[in-house]
Structure formats: C-alpha cells, structure tokens
Amino acid sequence: MPSVLGLFFPLVQFSLLIGCAALTALAQPPPTSATPAERAFRELTDGAGRSIKVPARIERIVSLAPSMTETVFALGLQARLAGVTDHCDFPPEALALPKVGGGLTPSLERIVELKPDLVLATTLLNRRETVDSLDRLGVPAFSARDPQTVDDVLLEITSVASALGASDQGAALVAELRARLAALDQALAGRAPRRVLFIVWHDPLITIGRNTFIADALRRAGGLSVIDVEQDWPRISLEEVVRLDPEVLVFASSHSEGVRQTFESLAARPAWQGLTAVKNRQYAIISDAVNRPAPRLLAAIEELARQLHPAAFASPVKETPGARSEKQENGRAMQKEKPSCSR
C-alpha cells in the first residue's frame, strides 16, 4: 500500500518553509539610499562601552526615558527632540511631543518613523533588548551608564551632552550643578548627618540600597540612609526598621497631600508607633525628581537638605534641640515645603 500521506505532509510543510524563506529573503535590510558623503559621521562610545556611529550634527533625538528628556531640555536642545515616552512629563512642553510608547515597551515602528539620528536610553528604565533591536535596525542608540552616585549622574549628563554635540552647554550646566552642590556642602559643613529611611513604598516596605544614586543624594543632602545593603530596591521588615530606628522618614512624591495621608495612616498602626520618627512626626516630603538621574535631582537634594537641617538655611532662630513642640513645629515646617514638580 503506497504511503500517499507521505506526499502531502511535506507539500504542506514545504509550502510553509518556502513561503517563510521567501519572506525572510524579503526582509534583507534595504540598500542605503543616502550616499554617505552627504553627512559626516563620528564615532562615540556610550555609557555601556558600546561604539556608535552617529551623524556629525544630531538633528533628531528620541528619548526613551524621562530623565533623558529632562536633560535634553536642560541642555537647551529641546527643538531637536523628535519623540519621547509616555512617561516624560517634565517640563510640561514634553507632554506635547510625539510619543513612542513606554520606556520598557516602546514601539520600534514609531521610533523608526521619527528617523532619529540618536536614541537616548538608560540602563535603569530601558531594556537591553530594545537597544539591541535598535542596533540591528541600524538606528544609533546611546545607552547611559547606570549611575551609582550623584557624581555619576553629572558625568552622564556630560557624556550625553558630548554625544549630542553640545559639550559647551553640557559643561556649563554641570558647572552650575556642581556649584550648587559645593554650596550645599559648605552649608552642611560640620553638621552630623541625620539618620533617614527613604521609603519607596510603604506596603510592602521597600527602600533603596547603598549602590543607588538616591542613597548618595541623601548623603549630599545631609542624611544617611540607615539601610546598607547591596540590593538596589530591598524589601525590609518593620522589625529591622524599628531596630535601626531612623530619625526621619523621607518620601518622594508629586502629591504631598497623598503622602501626608499615607503618613497618618502609618502612624495609626501600632507596629509603626514604636519608631522615633513616627512619635516625633519627623518626615520629609521631596519631589519625585530624586528618582530621576537628571539635572532636577539637585533641586530635590536641596529641598531635602533644607528639611533635614533647617538651621543651616533658615534665618537664625534659637532652637532647643529635643523639645517636642519644636519638633512638631519642624514637622509642620517640613510639610509646608511644596515639591517642585509640575504634575
């Protein structure tokens, strides 16, 4: 009995194979229509050590992270910004720019459609796969290094500026930021750092590890994170917090009212009432710019420094350390600070 079935199976499957092979052949990269001599190119190295070839003058930028968008605006290059992510909300002008999707799941199609000369990405917010896919499509992508200190943030701003061909603006911006840091250092000179706990989320309790630039930002603001672990976003137990007993709880949010309510609800819990910070109502609210490795980070640091060491910045008023009513006044003073973001 001849095995007739043997004929049809390969026929069906081969048609699939042939079809797909043909389609694969169609997918060869198109021949470059623009002659290379029209635009000069230069090589640069990104934060991840990758070598990228970009046009000498970068006219069209796509940013894949809010921090990158802010940096581009701060460098005064916003006119060249062709596309941003859905989460790029500062400054408000960014909201009007064309969107390419989320930082984690951008649409490659949209990015390609915008014909960028350079795509700016971070290791914090963007996936390696996205950058690799852009590479394979021939779209130059600059991947910033993961900043672990405030200084790293400034260095990355410098290198992004250099990549964009705006080294002068970059140098000026970074110089100004460094000056503000120096002023902070001077104001806080000789003052003991206050022990703080930076709360990313309260339930479950998540904070930041020592290798994050946020931890370093706290330090520059005259605080010291009580949590000293390798992990970047460690979950800690309340027991551990009680044992470490930080002086001040630090929240970063665009909604100061929401944070106040959160704090009140936490203070109502018996487990939290053992904390010195809760008993004395010592908490600080700063802008969520502290989460972004962008120029606005400085403003958040300054904001925090004023709340942690008001004496260093306010007009001289005699304060008796340890008085509960004064601590309450400090608490209220802290709460008066408005976060400087625009949501």
Binding site: L16, C20, L23, T24, L26, A27, Q28, P29, P30, T32, S33, L108, E109, V112, E113, K115, L137, G138
Partner: peptide
C-alpha cells in the same frame, strides 16, 4: 526601485515581517 521613504521599508520588512515570522 522603491520611491517610498526608507522608514516605511524598514518598518514593514525589518520590524513587522521578522516579528510575524517569529510568530508563525
């Protein structure tokens, strides 16, 4: 010769098509 802009070619043949093949 393809008169349409290269981005369209890239989108159809280098982004969508490979993705469709992988889906198959």
């Amino acid at each position: 010769e393809e008169p349409l802009p290269t981005e369209y070619q890239m989108i159809v043949f280098n982004i969508r098509l490979p993705r469709i093949l992988l889906s198959v």
